[in-house]
């Protein structure tokens, strides 16, 4: 199985692998990544997965993600695993979690919200709803993660 995967998405020498992305969400992950166009990026979609049945995956050569990128990816792919690769070896493996307080990562979809008329950082908090929702600290409206736009 791992050999088949190896053929589908090549291993990288140094860089970051974002594994266990919910199938279909890889485009959103790519939108979040601050790429300058020179990086080698490999994308796998709808790969079989023990954990998720189907998953997407991204491998990026020679890139470490910023905290903002990691938190934003957690929002769109809360089951994702972040793997740092050094010399073809796994140096670090972290399961992503949506932060309780989400600062300046989301654009509030409410056009009447003050964050859309004044130059202020948006603040959202995770609610206890199932499926997970976020509530704007200012206008107090609640949204599904899929309804909000992630800031670049």
């Amino acid at each position: 199985m791992s050999q088949i995967k190896q053929i589908k998405v090549n291993a990288i020498k140094n860089g970051t692998v974002i594994d266990h992305i919910t199938a279909g969400k890889v485009r959103k992950v790519l939108d979040i990544l601050e790429l300058d166009g020179t990086e080698i990026v490999m994308v796998g979609m709808n790969l079989s997965s023990k954990k998720l049945n189907r998953k997407d995956i991204v491998k990026i050569e020679n890139k470490e993600l910023s905290r903002n990128e990691v938190n934003s990816i957690a929002l769109v792919a809360p089951n994702a695993t972040l793997i740092i690769i050094k010399d073809f070896e796994v140096e670090k493996k972290v399961s992503l979690e949506i932060p309780e307080n989400i600062e300046n990562l989301i654009v509030c979809p409410n056009p009447k919200c003050i964050t859309n008329s004044e130059d202020i950082k948006s603040k959202f908090r995770l609610t206890k709803d199932e499926p997970v929702k976020v509530r704007c600290f200012y206008c107090e409206k609640k949204y599904l993660i899929d309804e909000v736009k992630i800031k670049k």
Partner: peptide
């Protein structure tokens, strides 16, 4: 204010 969240801000 007509702007939502104005008082919080």
């Amino acid at each position: 204010s007509p702007v939502e969240g104005a008082a919080r801000y």
